[in-house]
Amino acid sequence: MATEIKNSPPEPWFKKARRPKEIDEMIDENTILVRRTLRSGQKIHFDGNVVVVGDVNPGAEIVASGHIIVLGALRGVVHAGASGDEQAAVLAFRLQPTQLRIANHITRPPDDEITGPEQPEIARIKDNMVTIEVFQSSDRYGNLI
């Protein structure tokens, strides 16, 4: 890890003038960490990114203006880039959503899909279509989503 982000206490390098631009952008990003499983009937609406350490169960819903990352099984309804951001992505250890939306694209799994994914997957818009790919943490480090 080349870059380090510290929030407090302020140290000399932290002074705004000397902070690299990309770090500035990172600090401006709004992200919440949800440290539990979202159960049926529970909803999160957030202006920013949402990271869930747990599952998103059927009947649960996440709407975020940014990315949605689920470190667990994603089986509910998610909407990333809800304010129209087509760059937003949805990433999950087990991507099995009831419905998945990115910006104004709405998708659902095919009706005959029986088996779930075995590995982490990422959904994003490519060529004006929501595509789902196996998430590979090794390629292009630093620009994963």
């Binding site: 539990r36 169960n57 009947g59």
Partner: peptide, 12 residues
């Protein structure tokens, strides 16, 4: 199971 999940959320 869906209703059980909802109830578990409410219990929590």
């Amino acid at each position: 199971v869906r209703d059980a999940d909802r109830v578990i959320g409410l219990l929590e």
